Amino acid sequence: MERLQFEMFANEILSRLPTKCLARLRCVSKQWRYELSSHLFAIIHYRRMANNPYRKVIMLTKSSVDIHNLIGGKLDISSRKIISFPIDTHLSNLIILASQYGILLMCIQWRPNELILWNPTTNQFFNLCDKKPKKFLDLREDAVGIYMDSSNDLKILLLQRRKDDVIPRVYSRNTCEWKTLTFLKGADYASSLYWWSSGTLCNNVLYFSSPHYWTPAKSYTIAFDVQSETFSKVSIPQHTDVIGRQTRDP
Rank of each mutant, 00 (worst) to 15 (best):
P237G: 02
K132M: 11
L193E: 07
K74A: 13
A42N: 11
I222Y: 05
D241C: 09
F224M: 06
F208A: 08
I71R: 13
R173V: 14
L139N: 00
D66E: 14
V144N: 00
N52K: 05
Y171E: 01
S84D: 15
L105E: 03
H68M: 14
Y194I: 08
T200A: 07
A143Y: 01
S192N: 13
N113K: 03
V144P: 07
L117W: 04
I95Q: 02
Q160V: 12
P250I: 11
Y207P: 06
G73R: 09
D153R: 02
T247K: 08
L206Q: 08
I108A: 04
S37K: 05
F224E: 00
K81H: 12
V170M: 06
K132H: 13
F41H: 01
I103F: 03
W32A: 02
L159R: 05
S38L: 07
N69K: 13
G102H: 03
S232Y: 05
C21T: 15
Q227I: 15
N119Y: 02
C129F: 10
Y220M: 01
E12L: 05
N69L: 14
P237E: 03
I243S: 04
L181H: 04
R3F: 10
L117T: 07
V28M: 07
C176E: 13
A143K: 04
Y189V: 00
A190I: 08
F6R: 11
T247A: 00
L104R: 02
V57I: 10
Y194D: 13
N113H: 01
D188L: 10
K135V: 12
K81F: 09
K185I: 09
A10I: 01
M8Q: 15
E2T: 07
S150T: 09
P133N: 07
I146F: 04
D88S: 14
I116A: 02
L184A: 07
P86V: 12
S232L: 09
S172D: 00
D165F: 13
C129Y: 07
I71N: 13
I77K: 14
Q160W: 04
W196H: 15
Q100L: 15
L60P: 03
W32P: 06
D164Q: 13
L154G: 03
N123L: 09
L158I: 06
L91I: 05
Y189S: 04
A10N: 03
S219M: 01
A190K: 01
I167E: 02
T180C: 13
S210M: 10
D165Q: 14
C176F: 12
P53A: 03
R16S: 05
E229V: 07
I43P: 01
L94E: 08
V205K: 08
S38E: 01
G145Q: 01
R161F: 11
R48V: 10
